[in-house]
């Protein structure tokens, strides 16, 4: 049997707009149905299948309950891959963002080398606040307008919307990393970027 995808586990269409309450109820229901405690007295094959189902239900719920994780899963699914590695088409963050982040990392590296005085701290804190706001806006877009665009897209339109979703996820990933770098620097943790990333 083909393994069900996570949307299918909950009998959902491959859409991003999911009623969180309904999803939770369905999760509880399926969890109970396949819970190992309720499989006593059944054949070993049936117990093994229940265990597999139970694991699938848990994984599906983890992937779908959070709206952003849901987008990440949708993208992986659309590309036919189960892991984060091996993206078919590389996502592209806007070049301006890459340039901005590069400059910010340069400033940060210089500030680290020269010691973080109060002025520099204040400057970096302002930058960080700005990026945190931008991250929130990007996440709102992923959960809001882009999700709606996916759900209402015609099949012909889907590749374009999917690409937009991927790019937005890339932007979010960059923003999160650089915000982490700034936070580490501001909180005085000596974290060499080379080490905390991997």
């Amino acid at each position: 049997m083909r393994r069900m995808n996570y949307f299918e586990v909950f009998c959902l269409d491959r859409k991003l707009g999911i009623d969180a309450q309904a999803l939770q109820s369905r999760f509880y229901e399926l969890s109970r149905r396949w819970h190992p405690d309720f499989q006593q007295g059944r054949t070993p094959e049936a117990q093994a299948e229940a265990l597999e189902r139970s694991a699938l239900v848990n994984a599906a719920y983890r992937a779908l309950r959070d709206p952003i994780a849901r987008v990440e899963y949708l993208v992986r699914l659309a590309e036919g891959r189960d892991t984060k590695g091996g993206a078919v088409v590389k996502p592209k963050a806007p070049p301006e963002l890459l340039e901005e982040i590069f400059e910010l990392l340069e400033t940060l590296a210089e500030a680290r080398a020269g010691g973080l005085d109060d002025d520099r701290r204040a400057e970096l804190a302002v930058e960080r606040d700005r990026l945190v706001k931008r991250l929130a806006a990007e996440e709102d877009r992923l959960k809001g307008s882009l999700a709606t665009a996916w759900d209402s897209a015609t099949p012909a339109d889907r590749p374009r919307v999917l690409a937009a979703l991927k790019d937005a996820l890339a932007v979010r990933a960059y923003l999160r990393t650089v915000i982490d770098d700034l936070t580490n620097a501001l909180e005085g943790q000596e974290s060499d970027a080379a080490h905390h990333r991997h």
Binding site: K84, A93, L98, I101, F102, A170, V171, Y174, R197
Partner: peptide, 13 residues
């Protein structure tokens, strides 16, 4: 050339 890898946050010029 300025490129990046969003998944690990690396940026390379």
């Amino acid at each position: 050339g300025l490129v990046g890898a969003p998944e690990c946050g690396d940026v390379m010029k």
